[in-house]
């Protein structure tokens, strides 16, 4: 029951606080009232039918860059 799943927002209905979200071809109606701003194309973490946070692309790329730096340091020192 505690599973959070990343999903892609396909369509937003602000009045109802709802959106259609997709993962691996599976589309589901979710609530987006817990987030301030959500647009089609955003990735969110969905938990029990509620989007609980938007995934931040910049931070995702930062983490991947950090991993590359760790690999680089390892090669230099190793």
């Amino acid at each position: 029951m505690c599973l959070g799943v990343p999903m892609k927002i396909i369509e937003v209905n602000r009045e109802l606080g709802m959106a259609k979200a997709e993962i691996s071809g599976f589309i589901q109606n979710i609530r987006i009232d817990l987030l301030d701003e959500v647009s089609a194309g955003d990735y969110v973490i969905v938990h029990a039918g509620f989007a609980i946070q938007k995934l931040n692309e910049k931070d995702a790329l930062e983490t991947l860059k950090l991993i590359e730096e760790i690999f680089f340091d390892d090669e230099v020192s190793g």
């Binding site: 817990l34 301030d36 609980i52 983490t63």
Partner: peptide, 15 residues
């Protein structure tokens, strides 16, 4: 914080 793409220091304040 090694999960910054989802986690902010104060989390989701609205929630």
């Amino acid at each position: 914080n090694m999960y910054p793409r989802a986690v902010k220091p104060h989390g989701n304040r609205k929630a």
